[in-house]
Design a protein around this nucleic acid. Structure first.
Length: 476
RNA sequence: UCCUCCUUAGCUCAGUUGGUUAGAGCACAUGACUGUUAAUCAUGGGGUCUCAGGUUCAAGUCCUGAAGGGGGAGCCA
């Protein structure tokens, strides 16, 4: 018989039909009742086995074992579930030695412990929910852009440009690490390397996406990104997924509108399609918050927070206004900030958190940053001091989006590159877009895992990517 | 990378001022029960107190160092 997904049995009330279900045992009670889960949804189906089931088989129905059950869906005779499967035949597909199985669900294993057994943690309610939501968000990303006529552009994973300046990169090389060929001055001779030059894993697909936007008008990338920074925080990964739309003819305001629509859309899509998972995660978060002192708890539950974001426009302020708000704040006057606030500073997390979590209590888009703290490709404003950058700051996460209108004027761009010591010769292909039919354009980068954090209410980025890569950690 | 805290049974955690044989719940094993809902009940096994040094008559407990992890910061998405 063809397998029926547990989700499909649970979501309709029909009874008295034959099914085959397959899955993993979550709980076995009273030598009779199996809570079976196949990952298709949060819920388990209760399988009832007959009292005369072979004792050898009963013995093998342990937590974690995989079983296949032929039976009849009936209205449940017990409380706690509407329907259940009365088993005619049960076979053990894979035994699971309870003495060795490291995942014992009844022990309330901590997130930190589960991270050490990341290969098994999908079998928990929490991670089941997180990764179903992650999937839905990823699907919604593609759907959003596809529905709006964007071209999904696969930008390279391996790049030779060392001019992006976005932090430390992972080198890609086939040279023998213990004895690489060297130039006369002792430096490594990359001419003998696989690509004939020094290459790295990408830190951003933006520059290439801009090339695509100069032909398709609107493109986006969604792929892995690598940063070799020694960042040990709950918000950083060495390997993460980034979404980078790039749109010709858009200015900074269009860019903000796009980012806001996009974020709202994918949240709404997850709310619609993963309601059960999100409700479980909301409850999990609420339970976790009960452990915290009152003043550290969030005012809104997870669902309420997401609904709030869906129903309220983001606050839009300029950098200059942000600085003014901070300087006028009671926190500043009482000298609560560790770092001083003056125009020109790169805002510290304490400043960003104050704006988002205390002052506005919602996502905030900050525009018009001083040119000196932003990248070379951002468009110079008429004041000559600020650039058309935008960061979106989210409560609890910090910077979730970083974007800008790009400098489309060749003379301005080359001037900025000179000032910031970016080698223009190596970037001829980038500058060519400004030479041959340049147009105003804008785009942004959104850290996918940070988005998943925001939607699931999880607090450590290592718990929203299946197999996290962080400094000193590349297990699995 | 910096600051700070933590590391005791398979998991989650107690462990008093340094003092006899280091405890609990869950998990696990054996048995009982059989419409259970993290099933329940009884019995039982299970410890290099993270590691390496040191102080002391005596160290899970105090000191030094290392490793791993958490929280915060920086860098950023």
């Amino acid at each position: 018989m063809k397998r029926t997904k547990i989700k499909d049995i649970l979501r309709n009330d029909a009874t008295n039909y034959q099914v085959n279900v397959k899955g993993w045992v979550r709980s076995f009670r009273n030598n009779q009742f199996i809570a079976l889960n196949d990952g298709s949804c949060m819920g388990n189906i209760q399988v009832v086995i007959s009292l005369d089931t072979d004792a050898e088989i009963v013995k093998q129905i342990n937590n974690g074992a995989s079983v296949s059950v032929d039976g009849t869906v009936i209205a449940s005779m017990g409380k706690g579930q509407k329907v259940e499967v009365k088993a005619d035949q049960i076979t053990i597909m894979g035994v699971c030695d309870p003495e060795q199985f490291p995942l014992q669900l009844k022990n309330k294993p901590s997130l930190e412990y589960l991270r050490e057994i990341a290969h098994l943690r999908f079998r928990t309610n929490t991670f089941g929910a997180v990764f179903r939501v992650r999937h839905t968000l990823a699907y919604a990303v593609h759907k959003f852009f596809n529905d709006r006529g964007f071209v999904y552009l696969h930008t390279p994973i391996i790049t030779a440009s060392d001019a992006e300046g976005a932090g430390e990169m992972f080198r890609v090389s086939t040279l023998p690490p213990d004895n690489p060929p060297r130039n006369e001055d002792g430096t490594i001779n990359y001419k003998e390397d696989f690509f004939g030059r020094c290459t790295n894993l990408t830190v951003s697909g933006q520059l290439e996406a801009e090339l695509g936007a100069m032909a398709f008008s609107e493109v986006y990338t969604f792929g892995p990104t690598f940063r070799a920074e020694n960042s040990n925080t709950a918000r950083h990964l060495a390997e993460f997924w980034m979404i980078e739309p790039e749109v010709a003819f858009n200015d900074i305001t269009d860019n903000m509108d796009l980012a806001e629509d996009f974020i709202r859309y994918i949240i709404g899509y997850a709310m619609e399609h993963n309601r059960e998972d999100l409700e479980f995660l909301a409850q999990r978060l609420a339970d976790e918050e009960k452990q915290k002192p009152l003043n550290e708890r969030s005012e809104l539950g997870l669902i309420e927070k997401l609904e709030f974001v869906l129903n309220n426009k983001f606050e839009r302020i300029t950098y200059t206004e942000a600085i003014q708000i901070l300087r006028d704040s009671p926190a500043y006057k009482k000298k609560k900030f560790q770092y001083d606030v003056t125009w020109g500073i790169d805002m510290q997390s304490e400043h960003e958190r104050y704006l988002v979590e205390k002052h506005f209590k919602k996502p905030v888009i900050v525009t018009g940053y001083p040119k000196d703290i932003k990248a070379f490709y951002m468009r110079m404003n008429d004041d000559g001091k600020t650039v058309a950058a935008m960061d979106i700051l989210a409560p609890g996460i910090g910077e979730i989006v970083g974007g800008s209108q790009r400098e489309e004027r060749l003379d301005m761009l080359t001037k900025r590159m000179e000032e910031m010591h970016i080698p223009a010769e190596e970037m001829f292909w980038y500058l060519d877009t400004r030479r041959f039919g340049t147009v105003p354009h804008a785009g942004f980068g959104l850290g996918f895992e940070r988005m998943v954090l925001f939607v699931t209410g999880m607090t450590n980025i290592r718990d929203v990517i299946p197999f996290p890569r962080t400094p000193k950690n590349a297990e699995f």
